[in-house]
Design a protein around this nucleic acid. Structure first.
Length: 447
RNA sequence: GGUCCGGUGGCAGAGUGGUGAUGCAGAGGACUGCAAAUCCUCGAAUGCCGGUUCGAUUCCGGCCCGGACCUCCA
C-alpha cells in the first residue's frame, strides 16, 4: 500500500498518515455558508480536498468525506432582511448554485453533505454535555463556551489566551465571563429562525455546527479535517475545544490540513477592491474556464498562497490543450507511479503536473502506454473530463465551419493562397483557428 | 503589537547538504505556400548578512520584504 504523508497543521510537521480505522478513512471539510454565490476562493479548498479524496479512495477501501452546508447563520438572516427574499429561498437557491459551480471545477460531491438546520438536536446535545462538564454556561439567553475550562485552548493555532487578548479589537459582551469565550447558542427574536432549546428559542453559533455534524457522521474521532487557512482561528480552534470537552478521551481530528488563501492580481480578493470573482464570472470566460481554473489551482501547492490572474488561467488552459492532444482517445491504464508518489507526499500537485508533462512528451512522440497512463493520471487529478472534440471545438452545429474549410482547401489546391489566407483570417476573426496537418486540415476554437 | 507561513530564472512553480525540475513567455532551427500544432537547440534564478560544514539554495541565527490570522472571511 502506498504510504501517504501529510503536513499536519496541528503539529506543523509532515507526518505519515495512519487512519484510525485501517480500512475506512473519514474526512471532514468546512463547507459554505449559503447566502451568496461562491467565489473562486471558495472553490480552492473544494478542489484541493476533492483531489485528496480521490487519492484516498485509490489507496483505501472505504472513504467517507463529509462537507457541511451552513444554512443557518447571521449572514443569511441579514441577506434576507436586506433583499426581502425568504431565508428558505436564499439557502435552497444558493445551495443549488454551489453544487453547479463546484461541478464546473470538476469536484465530485462529498459522500455526505449535512445541513446545519437538520442537526440542531445534535448541537443541543453537545451544548448540554459541555454545560454538564463545566465547559459552558448560560447567560442572558446565550450559552457560551468557557475558554478557561480547556487548558489546551490555543494549541491548534499556536496562540496563548494572552496573545488573543492583546490583539482583541472587539467589544466584549457583558454576558461573557471571559473575553475569549465564544457563543454556542444565541437567542432569536421572533423574526429570526429559531429552535426551542433548554435556553429558550434560539439558534446555534457557527462553531458548534461543525462539531455536531462531524460527530454525527464521522464519530467522536476521525482522520482528517480540512479547510481554509483563515479558519484555523477561531473556527477550528473552537471546534477542537468543543469536541474534546464534549467527548473526553477522544482525539477529534487526527490531521488538520489547511489550504492557502487566494489572491487576485497580487491583492486580497475583496468587494471593496473591485477584484471579487465568483465562479460564475470565471465560467463566463468560456466553457474551458472551470477546467483551467482547476488546473491553475493544482499548479500551486495547496498550502501556498495562490495568485489568480486571467493570464495565469489562459496559461493553464494551454497546458490542458497539450494534455488533450497528447491523450487523444487513449483508454486509461494506471496513474504513473511518479504522479502517485508526488500526491502521496503532502499532495504535491505541482510536481504531479510536471510528471503529466513528461507523459505528454512521450505520448506525443507516439508512446501509447504513456498516453494511457496520462489519461489515468489526469483522471486521478480530476483534470480533462471533457472529451477532446468538445474541448477544442465546443458543442453545436459546425456545418458552416466545415464549408469554409472546404472552400479553403479548394483555394489551396488551386494555389490561390491569398484566398486561402483570407478564409483562414476570416474564421480566426470568428474565433476559429485552422491547422494544416500532414493528414489534412483541422480546426479548433481559439481562446 | 502578537502568533504563524513564505521569499527560487521575465512570469508561474517543484525538488535538493555536493555542479537547480516542469510549464508559460523569449531567441534560433526543422516542418509548412504562409501559419498553427509538433520536434530540436539556447539564454535566464535560489532576498541580505553571519554561523555550522570539505561543501548551503537546502540546516541554524539575525535582518529586510511579502502574506494569513488575532472572536463567526474558504
Amino acid at each position: 500500500m502506498l504510504d501517504l504523508h501529510f503536513h499536519n497543521s496541528a503539529t506543523r510537521r509532515k507526518e505519515k498518515f495512519t487512519p484510525l480505522d485501517a480500512l475506512h478513512v473519514r474526512m471532514y471539510v468546512c463547507g459554505p455558508t449559503v447566502y451568496d454565490l461562491a467565489h473562486i476562493g471558495n472553490a480552492r479548498p473544494v478542489i484541493v480536498f476533492d483531489v485528496l479524496s480521490r487519492l484516498l479512495r485509490r489507496v483505501y477501501p472505504r472513504v467517507t468525506y463529509a462537507r457541511n452546508i451552513t444554512d443557518v447563520d447571521d449572514k443569511i438572516i441579514d441577506r434576507a432582511r436586506d433583499s426581502g427574499e425568504p431565508i428558505d429561498s436564499i439557502t435552497t437557491r444558493t445551495t443549488a448554485d454551489y453544487h453547479a459551480d463546484m461541478a464546473s471545477v470538476g469536484a465530485m460531491r462529498p459522500d455526505i453533505e449535512p445541513r446545519a438546520t437538520t442537526h440542531i438536536a445534535e448541537m443541543i446535545t453537545l451544548i448540554e454535555k459541555l454545560i454538564a462538564g463545566g465547559h459552558a454556561y448560560a447567560a442572558e439567553g446565550h450559552v457560551l463556551f468557557a475558554v478557561k475550562s480547556f487548558d489546551k485552548y490555543g494549541k491548534l493555532s499556536g496562540r496563548s489566551p494572552e496573545d488573543l487578548l492583546a490583539g482583541a479589537r472587539v467589544e466584549v459582551a457583558t454576558y461573557k465571563n471571559d473575553p475569549g469565550d465564544f457563543v454556542l447558542w444565541k437567542p432569536s427574536t421572533d423574526d429570526m429562525p429559531g429552535w426551542n432549546s433548554p435556553w429558550g428559542r434560539g439558534r446555534p453559533g457557527w462553531h458548534i455546527e461543525c462539531s455536531a455534524m462531524s460527530w454525527k457522521h464521522l464519530g467522536e474521532s476521525f482522520d482528517i479535517h480540512g479547510g481554509g487557512e483563515d479558519l484555523l482561528f477561531p473556527h477550528h480552534e473552537n471546534e477542537v475545544a468543543q469536541s474534546l470537552c464534549a467527548f473526553p478521551g477522544s482525539v477529534f481530528a487526527r490531521v488538520w490540513m489547511h489550504n492557502g488563501m487566494l489572491r487576485v492580481n497580487g491583492e486580497k480578493m475583496s468587494k471593496s477592491l473591485g477584484n471579487f470573482r465568483t465562479v460564475r464570472d470565471l465560467l463566463a470566460l468560456g466553457p474551458w474556464a472551470g477546467e483551467a481554473y482547476r488546473m491553475l489551482v493544482l499548479k500551486t501547492h495547496y498550502r501556498a498562497v495562490l495568485d489568480y490572474s486571467e493570464d495565469a488561467l489562459h496559461g493553464a488552459k494551454k497546458e490542458l490543450d497539450r494534455f488533450q492532444r497528447a491523450m487523444g482517445n487513449a483508454k486509461p491504464s494506471a496513474p504513473h507511479a511518479d504522479v502517485l508518489a508526488a500526491l502521496a507526499d503532502d499532495l504535491n500537485t505541482p510536481l504531479a503536473v510536471s510528471v503529466l508533462h513528461r507523459l505528454a512528451d512521450a505520448a506525443l512522440a507516439g508512446d501509447a502506454d504513456a498516453a494511457s497512463s496520462l489519461r489515468a493520471s489526469v483522471d486521478l487529478l480530476g483534470l480533462c473530463w471533457t472529451d477532446a472534440e468538445t474541448w477544442f471545438r465546443g458543442e453545436g452545429d459546425n456545418a458552416v465551419i466545415e464549408a469554409a474549410i472546404n472552400a479553403r482547401l479548394a483555394a489551396r489546391a488551386a494555389k490561390n493562397f491569398a484566398e486561402a489566407d483570407r478564409i483562414r483570417a476570416d474564421l480566426l476573426a470568428q474565433g476559429i483557428l485552422l491547422e494544416d496537418n500532414a493528414g489534412g486540415t483541422t480546426w479548433r476554437r481559439a481562446s
